[in-house]
Design a protein around this nucleic acid. Structure first.
Lengths: 193, 193
DNA sequence: TCCAGTTTTCAGTAATTTCTGAAAGTTTGA
DNA sequence: TCAAACTTTCAGAAATTACTGAAAACTGGA
Protein backbone atom coordinates (compact mmCIF):
# COMPACT_ATOMS: atom_id res chain seq x y z
CA UNK A 1 0.00 0.00 0.00
CA UNK A 2 1.42 3.30 -1.07
CA UNK A 3 -0.84 6.17 -0.18
CA UNK A 4 -0.48 9.56 1.48
CA UNK A 5 -0.42 8.87 5.26
CA UNK A 6 -3.64 10.77 5.82
CA UNK A 7 -5.53 8.61 3.37
CA UNK A 8 -3.72 5.47 4.42
CA UNK A 9 -4.84 5.69 8.03
CA UNK A 10 -8.42 6.22 6.89
CA UNK A 11 -8.27 3.21 4.59
CA UNK A 12 -6.65 1.01 7.22
CA UNK A 13 -9.16 2.05 9.86
CA UNK A 14 -12.06 1.06 7.65
CA UNK A 15 -10.37 -2.21 6.98
CA UNK A 16 -10.21 -2.92 10.71
CA UNK A 17 -13.74 -1.69 11.30
CA UNK A 18 -15.02 -4.03 8.64
CA UNK A 19 -14.65 -6.99 10.94
CA UNK A 20 -16.89 -5.36 13.55
CA UNK A 21 -19.48 -5.01 10.84
CA UNK A 22 -19.39 -8.38 9.17
CA UNK A 23 -17.59 -7.18 6.05
CA UNK A 24 -14.06 -8.22 5.22
CA UNK A 25 -10.97 -6.09 5.37
CA UNK A 26 -10.48 -5.64 1.65
CA UNK A 27 -14.07 -4.57 1.13
CA UNK A 28 -13.75 -1.99 3.88
CA UNK A 29 -10.46 -0.69 2.56
CA UNK A 30 -11.67 -0.38 -1.00
CA UNK A 31 -14.78 1.42 0.11
CA UNK A 32 -12.74 3.89 2.15
CA UNK A 33 -10.36 4.46 -0.73
CA UNK A 34 -13.17 5.20 -3.16
CA UNK A 35 -14.91 7.39 -0.60
CA UNK A 36 -12.00 9.80 -0.29
CA UNK A 37 -10.80 9.61 -3.87
CA UNK A 38 -11.28 12.76 -5.90
CA UNK A 39 -11.90 10.77 -9.06
CA UNK A 40 -13.31 7.38 -10.02
CA UNK A 41 -10.81 4.53 -9.86
CA UNK A 42 -10.48 1.38 -11.92
CA UNK A 43 -9.63 -2.03 -10.54
CA UNK A 44 -5.93 -1.70 -11.27
CA UNK A 45 -5.75 1.67 -9.52
CA UNK A 46 -7.25 -0.06 -6.49
CA UNK A 47 -4.86 -3.02 -6.65
CA UNK A 48 -1.99 -0.55 -6.79
CA UNK A 49 -3.29 1.56 -3.91
CA UNK A 50 -4.40 -1.22 -1.54
CA UNK A 51 -1.91 -3.90 -2.48
CA UNK A 52 -4.29 -6.83 -2.85
CA UNK A 53 -4.77 -9.19 -5.76
CA UNK A 54 -6.73 -8.31 -8.84
CA UNK A 55 -9.24 -11.09 -8.21
CA UNK A 56 -9.81 -10.06 -4.64
CA UNK A 57 -10.54 -6.56 -5.85
CA UNK A 58 -13.04 -7.92 -8.31
CA UNK A 59 -14.84 -9.84 -5.54
CA UNK A 60 -14.84 -6.89 -3.19
CA UNK A 61 -16.24 -4.55 -5.82
CA UNK A 62 -18.96 -7.03 -6.56
CA UNK A 63 -19.92 -7.07 -2.91
CA UNK A 64 -19.89 -3.28 -2.67
CA UNK A 65 -22.15 -3.16 -5.70
CA UNK A 66 -24.51 -5.65 -4.07
CA UNK A 67 -24.69 -3.25 -1.13
CA UNK A 68 -25.30 -0.40 -3.60
CA UNK A 69 -22.41 1.49 -2.04
CA UNK A 70 -20.40 2.08 -5.20
CA UNK A 71 -21.32 3.42 -8.59
CA UNK A 72 -19.91 1.88 -11.76
CA UNK A 73 -19.13 4.19 -14.63
CA UNK A 74 -17.17 4.36 -17.83
CA UNK A 75 -14.79 7.03 -18.98
CA UNK A 76 -14.91 8.07 -22.62
CA UNK A 77 -12.32 6.26 -24.69
CA UNK A 78 -11.47 3.77 -21.90
CA UNK A 79 -12.89 0.29 -21.74
CA UNK A 80 -12.09 -0.23 -18.10
CA UNK A 81 -14.71 0.05 -15.39
CA UNK A 82 -14.38 2.94 -12.98
CA UNK A 83 -15.85 3.01 -9.51
CA UNK A 84 -16.81 5.78 -7.13
CA UNK A 85 -19.06 6.34 -4.14
CA UNK A 86 -22.09 8.63 -4.16
CA UNK A 87 -21.24 12.19 -3.12
CA UNK A 88 -24.06 12.76 -0.68
CA UNK A 89 -23.14 11.28 2.70
CA UNK A 90 -26.75 11.22 3.78
CA UNK A 91 -27.66 9.18 0.72
CA UNK A 92 -24.88 6.76 1.61
CA UNK A 93 -26.23 6.42 5.12
CA UNK A 94 -29.72 5.77 3.76
CA UNK A 95 -28.49 3.08 1.42
CA UNK A 96 -26.64 1.34 4.21
CA UNK A 97 -29.69 1.48 6.45
CA UNK A 98 -31.96 0.12 3.74
CA UNK A 99 -29.66 -2.77 2.95
CA UNK A 100 -29.23 -3.76 6.56
CA UNK A 101 -32.96 -3.55 7.03
CA UNK A 102 -33.47 -5.92 4.11
CA UNK A 103 -30.73 -8.35 5.05
CA UNK A 104 -30.93 -8.46 8.82
CA UNK A 105 -34.10 -6.94 10.16
CA UNK A 106 -36.61 -8.44 7.74
CA UNK A 107 -35.47 -12.04 8.22
CA UNK A 108 -35.54 -11.58 11.98
CA UNK A 109 -39.06 -10.20 11.90
CA UNK A 110 -40.16 -13.09 9.71
CA UNK A 111 -38.67 -15.60 12.13
CA UNK A 112 -40.31 -13.87 15.08
CA UNK A 113 -43.70 -13.75 13.39
CA UNK A 114 -43.43 -17.46 12.73
CA UNK A 115 -42.52 -18.27 16.32
CA UNK A 116 -45.23 -16.05 17.73
CA UNK A 117 -47.84 -17.83 15.62
CA UNK A 118 -47.01 -21.26 17.04
CA UNK A 119 -49.16 -22.76 19.76
CA UNK A 120 -47.05 -22.89 22.91
CA UNK A 121 -46.95 -26.07 24.95
CA UNK A 122 -46.12 -25.31 28.52
CA UNK A 123 -45.12 -22.30 30.54
CA UNK A 124 -41.57 -22.01 29.25
CA UNK A 125 -42.74 -21.70 25.67
CA UNK A 126 -45.49 -19.30 26.65
CA UNK A 127 -42.93 -17.08 28.35
CA UNK A 128 -40.55 -17.34 25.40
CA UNK A 129 -43.31 -16.27 23.06
CA UNK A 130 -44.14 -13.26 25.20
CA UNK A 131 -40.48 -12.23 25.12
CA UNK A 132 -40.28 -12.69 21.38
CA UNK A 133 -43.35 -10.54 21.05
CA UNK A 134 -41.71 -7.77 23.07
CA UNK A 135 -38.73 -7.93 20.78
CA UNK A 136 -40.93 -7.95 17.72
CA UNK A 137 -42.79 -4.85 18.83
CA UNK A 138 -39.60 -2.97 19.60
CA UNK A 139 -37.97 -3.82 16.30
CA UNK A 140 -41.08 -2.89 14.35
CA UNK A 141 -41.40 0.41 16.16
CA UNK A 142 -37.78 1.42 15.76
CA UNK A 143 -37.81 0.26 12.16
CA UNK A 144 -40.90 2.24 11.25
CA UNK A 145 -39.61 5.29 12.96
CA UNK A 146 -36.24 5.01 11.36
CA UNK A 147 -37.81 4.55 7.95
CA UNK A 148 -39.70 7.80 8.45
CA UNK A 149 -36.50 9.62 9.11
CA UNK A 150 -34.67 7.84 6.33
CA UNK A 151 -37.23 8.89 3.79
CA UNK A 152 -37.31 12.54 4.75
CA UNK A 153 -35.99 15.01 2.25
CA UNK A 154 -32.58 16.42 3.06
CA UNK A 155 -33.97 19.79 3.96
CA UNK A 156 -36.41 18.61 6.60
CA UNK A 157 -33.79 16.29 7.88
CA UNK A 158 -31.22 19.02 8.32
CA UNK A 159 -33.71 20.96 10.37
CA UNK A 160 -34.58 17.96 12.48
CA UNK A 161 -30.90 17.28 12.97
CA UNK A 162 -30.20 20.76 14.15
CA UNK A 163 -32.98 20.34 16.65
CA UNK A 164 -30.66 18.00 18.51
CA UNK A 165 -31.59 17.54 22.12
CA UNK A 166 -34.58 19.72 21.62
CA UNK A 167 -36.53 16.83 20.15
CA UNK A 168 -37.76 15.94 23.59
CA UNK A 169 -38.89 19.47 24.36
CA UNK A 170 -40.61 19.73 21.02
CA UNK A 171 -42.41 16.53 21.73
CA UNK A 172 -43.54 17.62 25.14
CA UNK A 173 -44.68 20.90 23.71
CA UNK A 174 -46.54 19.13 20.94
CA UNK A 175 -48.23 16.83 23.41
CA UNK A 176 -49.38 19.70 25.52
CA UNK A 177 -51.04 21.37 22.59
CA UNK A 178 -51.90 18.02 21.07
CA UNK A 179 -55.39 18.86 19.94
CA UNK A 180 -54.13 21.59 17.65
CA UNK A 181 -52.19 19.11 15.52
CA UNK A 182 -55.31 17.05 14.93
CA UNK A 183 -54.69 14.41 17.62
CA UNK A 184 -52.28 12.79 15.20
CA UNK A 185 -49.72 12.20 17.87
CA UNK A 186 -51.50 8.96 18.65
CA UNK A 187 -51.90 7.78 15.09
CA UNK A 188 -49.88 4.64 15.44
CA UNK A 189 -51.25 3.57 18.79
CA UNK A 190 -52.74 0.09 18.92
CA UNK A 191 -56.34 1.17 19.01
CA UNK A 192 -57.14 3.97 16.60
CA UNK A 193 -60.54 4.39 18.20
CA UNK B 1 -29.27 -28.94 21.34
CA UNK B 2 -32.50 -30.10 22.86
CA UNK B 3 -35.02 -27.31 23.10
CA UNK B 4 -38.68 -26.77 22.23
CA UNK B 5 -38.78 -26.08 18.46
CA UNK B 6 -40.09 -22.58 19.00
CA UNK B 7 -37.16 -21.63 21.19
CA UNK B 8 -34.70 -23.58 19.11
CA UNK B 9 -35.42 -21.62 15.95
CA UNK B 10 -35.02 -18.37 17.86
CA UNK B 11 -31.69 -19.47 19.31
CA UNK B 12 -30.40 -20.74 15.98
CA UNK B 13 -31.45 -17.57 14.19
CA UNK B 14 -29.51 -15.43 16.63
CA UNK B 15 -26.54 -17.69 16.17
CA UNK B 16 -26.63 -17.08 12.42
CA UNK B 17 -27.25 -13.36 12.82
CA UNK B 18 -24.22 -13.07 15.04
CA UNK B 19 -21.90 -13.31 12.08
CA UNK B 20 -23.55 -10.30 10.45
CA UNK B 21 -22.86 -8.40 13.62
CA UNK B 22 -19.31 -9.38 14.38
CA UNK B 23 -20.19 -11.67 17.29
CA UNK B 24 -19.71 -15.38 17.15
CA UNK B 25 -22.38 -18.02 16.91
CA UNK B 26 -22.17 -19.29 20.46
CA UNK B 27 -22.43 -15.80 21.92
CA UNK B 28 -25.52 -15.11 19.83
CA UNK B 29 -27.12 -18.39 20.77
CA UNK B 30 -26.49 -17.99 24.47
CA UNK B 31 -27.86 -14.50 24.46
CA UNK B 32 -31.00 -15.63 22.68
CA UNK B 33 -31.45 -18.50 25.10
CA UNK B 34 -31.15 -16.25 28.12
CA UNK B 35 -33.43 -13.69 26.54
CA UNK B 36 -36.36 -16.07 26.23
CA UNK B 37 -35.70 -18.07 29.37
CA UNK B 38 -38.23 -17.62 32.13
CA UNK B 39 -35.59 -18.05 34.81
CA UNK B 40 -31.87 -17.39 35.22
CA UNK B 41 -29.64 -20.18 33.90
CA UNK B 42 -26.27 -21.41 35.06
CA UNK B 43 -23.42 -22.39 32.78
CA UNK B 44 -24.31 -26.07 32.85
CA UNK B 45 -27.91 -25.36 31.91
CA UNK B 46 -26.56 -23.47 28.93
CA UNK B 47 -24.14 -26.22 27.92
CA UNK B 48 -27.03 -28.66 28.07
CA UNK B 49 -29.38 -26.45 26.07
CA UNK B 50 -26.97 -25.24 23.38
CA UNK B 51 -24.67 -28.23 23.17
CA UNK B 52 -21.34 -26.43 23.28
CA UNK B 53 -18.40 -26.98 25.60
CA UNK B 54 -18.25 -25.69 29.12
CA UNK B 55 -15.23 -23.53 28.36
CA UNK B 56 -16.81 -22.01 25.30
CA UNK B 57 -19.80 -21.09 27.42
CA UNK B 58 -17.54 -19.45 29.94
CA UNK B 59 -15.90 -17.35 27.22
CA UNK B 60 -19.20 -16.38 25.66
CA UNK B 61 -20.68 -15.31 28.99
CA UNK B 62 -17.62 -13.23 29.64
CA UNK B 63 -18.12 -11.46 26.35
CA UNK B 64 -21.82 -10.90 26.99
CA UNK B 65 -20.91 -9.41 30.34
CA UNK B 66 -18.39 -7.12 28.68
CA UNK B 67 -21.22 -5.91 26.48
CA UNK B 68 -23.38 -5.48 29.62
CA UNK B 69 -26.04 -7.63 28.00
CA UNK B 70 -26.38 -10.22 30.76
CA UNK B 71 -26.84 -9.94 34.49
CA UNK B 72 -24.99 -12.21 36.85
CA UNK B 73 -26.80 -13.31 40.00
CA UNK B 74 -26.67 -15.90 42.72
CA UNK B 75 -29.44 -18.12 43.98
CA UNK B 76 -29.67 -18.69 47.73
CA UNK B 77 -27.95 -21.90 48.75
CA UNK B 78 -26.33 -22.42 45.36
CA UNK B 79 -22.77 -21.47 44.65
CA UNK B 80 -23.14 -21.48 40.90
CA UNK B 81 -23.50 -18.31 38.88
CA UNK B 82 -26.82 -17.69 37.20
CA UNK B 83 -27.30 -15.46 34.19
CA UNK B 84 -30.25 -13.60 32.77
CA UNK B 85 -30.95 -10.67 30.46
CA UNK B 86 -32.57 -7.41 31.60
CA UNK B 87 -36.36 -7.49 31.28
CA UNK B 88 -36.85 -4.14 29.64
CA UNK B 89 -36.26 -4.45 25.90
CA UNK B 90 -35.72 -0.73 25.57
CA UNK B 91 -32.99 -0.85 28.18
CA UNK B 92 -31.36 -3.68 26.24
CA UNK B 93 -31.46 -1.62 23.06
CA UNK B 94 -29.92 1.33 24.89
CA UNK B 95 -27.10 -0.77 26.25
CA UNK B 96 -26.32 -2.15 22.84
CA UNK B 97 -26.31 1.32 21.33
CA UNK B 98 -24.04 2.67 24.03
CA UNK B 99 -21.55 -0.13 23.67
CA UNK B 100 -21.40 0.14 19.91
CA UNK B 101 -20.95 3.87 20.25
CA UNK B 102 -18.02 3.34 22.56
CA UNK B 103 -16.37 0.57 20.58
CA UNK B 104 -16.96 1.62 17.01
CA UNK B 105 -18.10 5.19 16.69
CA UNK B 106 -15.71 6.84 19.13
CA UNK B 107 -12.55 5.35 17.63
CA UNK B 108 -13.70 6.33 14.17
CA UNK B 109 -14.34 9.89 15.25
CA UNK B 110 -10.92 10.04 16.87
CA UNK B 111 -9.28 8.81 13.71
CA UNK B 112 -11.21 11.31 11.60
CA UNK B 113 -10.34 14.20 13.91
CA UNK B 114 -6.69 13.26 13.63
CA UNK B 115 -6.78 13.11 9.85
CA UNK B 116 -8.68 16.36 9.54
CA UNK B 117 -6.06 18.12 11.65
CA UNK B 118 -3.20 17.16 9.32
CA UNK B 119 -1.89 19.66 6.81
CA UNK B 120 -2.76 18.33 3.38
CA UNK B 121 -0.12 18.24 0.68
CA UNK B 122 -1.70 18.38 -2.72
CA UNK B 123 -5.19 18.31 -4.14
CA UNK B 124 -5.89 14.65 -3.53
CA UNK B 125 -5.26 15.00 0.18
CA UNK B 126 -7.24 18.19 0.35
CA UNK B 127 -10.19 16.46 -1.25
CA UNK B 128 -9.83 13.44 1.03
CA UNK B 129 -9.89 15.71 4.04
CA UNK B 130 -13.04 17.43 2.85
CA UNK B 131 -14.70 14.04 2.46
CA UNK B 132 -13.57 12.92 5.89
CA UNK B 133 -14.99 16.09 7.28
CA UNK B 134 -18.36 15.38 5.69
CA UNK B 135 -18.33 11.96 7.25
CA UNK B 136 -17.30 13.37 10.59
CA UNK B 137 -20.15 15.87 10.61
CA UNK B 138 -22.70 13.24 9.70
CA UNK B 139 -21.56 10.78 12.33
CA UNK B 140 -21.48 13.45 15.00
CA UNK B 141 -24.92 14.68 14.12
CA UNK B 142 -26.51 11.25 14.04
CA UNK B 143 -24.69 10.27 17.20
CA UNK B 144 -25.81 13.30 19.13
CA UNK B 145 -29.33 12.91 17.99
CA UNK B 146 -29.38 9.25 18.79
CA UNK B 147 -27.96 9.91 22.23
CA UNK B 148 -30.82 12.32 22.91
CA UNK B 149 -33.31 9.66 22.05
CA UNK B 150 -31.40 7.01 23.94
CA UNK B 151 -31.42 9.03 27.09
CA UNK B 152 -35.11 9.84 27.09
CA UNK B 153 -37.21 8.33 29.82
CA UNK B 154 -39.34 5.42 28.72
CA UNK B 155 -42.53 7.42 28.94
CA UNK B 156 -41.46 10.20 26.63
CA UNK B 157 -39.99 7.68 24.34
CA UNK B 158 -43.17 5.68 24.09
CA UNK B 159 -45.00 8.80 23.09
CA UNK B 160 -42.39 9.72 20.52
CA UNK B 161 -42.48 6.18 19.19
CA UNK B 162 -46.21 6.27 18.78
CA UNK B 163 -45.80 9.46 16.83
CA UNK B 164 -44.38 7.35 14.03
CA UNK B 165 -44.47 9.01 10.67
CA UNK B 166 -45.89 12.10 12.26
CA UNK B 167 -42.44 13.19 13.36
CA UNK B 168 -42.07 15.09 10.14
CA UNK B 169 -45.41 16.83 10.50
CA UNK B 170 -44.68 17.73 14.09
CA UNK B 171 -41.40 19.19 13.01
CA UNK B 172 -42.93 21.26 10.28
CA UNK B 173 -45.58 22.46 12.65
CA UNK B 174 -42.99 23.32 15.24
CA UNK B 175 -40.95 25.21 12.71
CA UNK B 176 -43.91 27.27 11.65
CA UNK B 177 -44.61 28.34 15.22
CA UNK B 178 -40.90 28.31 16.05
CA UNK B 179 -40.82 31.49 18.04
CA UNK B 180 -43.24 30.12 20.59
CA UNK B 181 -40.83 27.39 21.63
CA UNK B 182 -38.15 29.95 22.38
CA UNK B 183 -36.23 29.70 19.08
CA UNK B 184 -34.59 26.62 20.51
CA UNK B 185 -34.99 24.72 17.29
CA UNK B 186 -31.68 26.14 16.13
CA UNK B 187 -29.78 25.48 19.31
CA UNK B 188 -27.24 23.17 17.80
CA UNK B 189 -26.57 25.19 14.69
CA UNK B 190 -22.96 26.21 14.09
CA UNK B 191 -23.29 29.78 15.27
CA UNK B 192 -25.16 30.12 18.54
CA UNK B 193 -25.16 33.91 18.17
C1' DT C 1 -5.72 -25.55 56.02
C1' DC C 2 -7.92 -28.58 52.95
C1' DC C 3 -11.50 -30.04 49.95
C1' DA C 4 -15.42 -30.16 46.88
C1' DG C 5 -17.70 -27.50 43.72
C1' DT C 6 -17.24 -24.27 40.38
C1' DT C 7 -15.11 -21.07 36.88
C1' DT C 8 -11.29 -19.64 33.96
C1' DT C 9 -7.30 -20.16 31.17
C1' DC C 10 -4.78 -21.92 27.48
C1' DA C 11 -2.53 -24.69 23.98
C1' DG C 12 -3.78 -27.28 20.33
C1' DT C 13 -7.28 -28.51 16.80
C1' DA C 14 -11.15 -27.70 13.89
C1' DA C 15 -13.81 -24.83 11.10
C1' DT C 16 -14.42 -20.90 8.55
C1' DT C 17 -13.18 -17.07 5.96
C1' DT C 18 -10.21 -14.60 3.04
C1' DC C 19 -7.03 -14.31 -0.54
C1' DT C 20 -4.41 -15.71 -4.60
C1' DG C 21 -2.93 -17.16 -9.30
C1' DA C 22 -4.27 -19.43 -13.18
C1' DA C 23 -7.66 -20.19 -16.37
C1' DA C 24 -11.95 -19.13 -18.45
C1' DG C 25 -15.15 -15.71 -19.86
C1' DT C 26 -16.65 -11.31 -21.95
C1' DT C 27 -16.59 -7.29 -24.84
C1' DT C 28 -15.18 -4.24 -28.36
C1' DG C 29 -13.12 -2.76 -32.42
C1' DA C 30 -10.52 -3.88 -36.50
C1' DT D 1 -14.21 -13.74 -36.51
C1' DC D 2 -10.13 -12.65 -34.27
C1' DA D 3 -7.29 -10.57 -30.98
C1' DA D 4 -6.47 -7.44 -27.38
C1' DA D 5 -8.08 -5.56 -23.21
C1' DC D 6 -10.33 -6.30 -19.46
C1' DT D 7 -13.24 -8.95 -15.81
C1' DT D 8 -14.81 -13.00 -13.39
C1' DT D 9 -14.57 -17.59 -11.60
C1' DC D 10 -12.71 -21.09 -8.89
C1' DA D 11 -9.81 -24.51 -6.56
C1' DG D 12 -6.56 -24.58 -3.33
C1' DA D 13 -3.37 -22.03 0.06
C1' DA D 14 -3.02 -18.92 3.83
C1' DA D 15 -4.80 -16.59 7.59
C1' DT D 16 -8.01 -15.96 10.99
C1' DT D 17 -11.38 -17.20 14.21
C1' DA D 18 -13.96 -20.44 17.02
C1' DC D 19 -14.01 -24.38 19.88
C1' DT D 20 -12.47 -28.09 22.91
C1' DG D 21 -10.52 -30.76 26.81
C1' DA D 22 -7.33 -30.74 30.28
C1' DA D 23 -5.31 -28.36 33.77
C1' DA D 24 -5.04 -24.40 36.78
C1' DA D 25 -7.24 -21.20 39.67
C1' DC D 26 -10.68 -19.66 42.49
C1' DT D 27 -14.21 -19.82 46.58
C1' DG D 28 -16.56 -20.82 50.67
C1' DG D 29 -17.35 -23.93 54.14
C1' DA D 30 -15.68 -27.73 57.43
Amino acid sequence: MNLPPLIQSFVLHFGEMGSHWGINRTVGQIYALLYVSDKPLNADDIVEAIGCSRSNTSMALKELQAWRLVKLQHLPGDRREYFSTPDDVWAIFKTLAEERQKREVEPTLTMLRGAIMETPSGDAERHAQARMNEMYQLIELVTKWFADIRDMDVDTLQKLMKLGSQVQKVLQFTQSIGRLTGRDSNRNADAEA
